[in-house]
Nucleic acid binder design. Structure first.
Lengths: 110, 110
DNA sequence: GCGTTTCATCGTTTTTTCCCGATAAAGGTG
DNA sequence: CACCTTTATCGGGAAAAAACGATGAAACGC
């Protein structure tokens, strides 16, 4: 695969452990909390649609200041729902498939 | 069906409209926000497991004051995830299947 | 009717979230 | 090296959330 054509967000690098009952509640709550804001849902949808997206593009599309969008990206990243990779001066964000899958699974198991 | 044996939370009484793109983002965010707290996840799991549950039982099982639990129940009810029905002096809570299904669907569609 | 039980609501305090502008860090370009 | 672009972080202010105890309302038993 040509390096220039490679997606900015490569392969996963770990496993998701299966937690206890209570830890799963906490984890579901954390993931849901991260999704629990319209702007963050919009960011997720954009990343799902485009596969990857530079931070600045997100800022352009959202009616918020750059620092605000950056904060939402941080929230999503810390929740394990997206990942960001530095690409020269900018940062390319994309979905973290394992995080999103885990969220879907935990919700579906309800 | 005998009235005494009837479940406290009866049949649904309305339809869930299909909203626009942006409204769906907002709705998903609202539902996720409601789920985004460990105590509320615990309440949901209990109601799913038991099918129905009186408020006081929830309070007994959770490490929070009665008013706090009542507040969480209100949050879940306003989000459309549970319903409560007065049963004499107490209140019987149960899952609102349409709300939970909608949540699952919106998450799965991500 | 009176007290008891059950739950919601109110008022308060503390903590967290959200948003912004300003600043700093890191990577290009000339 | 100086400059510009891009993004993260900081500090602050406003708003919302979370928890509690206390009070109030509704339904029952005596």
């Amino acid at each position: 695969m040509n390096e220039l054509d490679a997606p900015c967000c490569g392969s996963p690098d770990g496993e998701i452990a299966i937690e206890s009952e209570e830890e799963r509640d906490t984890q579901l709550a954390q993931l849901a909390k991260a999704v629990g804001h319209p702007t963050r849902v919009a960011i997720l949808r954009t990343l799902i649609e485009r596969d990857e997206c530079v931070c600045g593009e997100l800022v352009d599309e959202l009616p918020y200041a750059q620092s605000t969008v950056s904060g939402h990206l941080k929230t999503l990243k810390e929740a394990g729902l997206i990942r960001g990779e530095v690409q020269g001066p900018s940062v390319c964000y994309c979905i973290e498939p394992r995080g999103l899958s885990l969220f879907k699974q935990l919700v579906d198991e309800l």
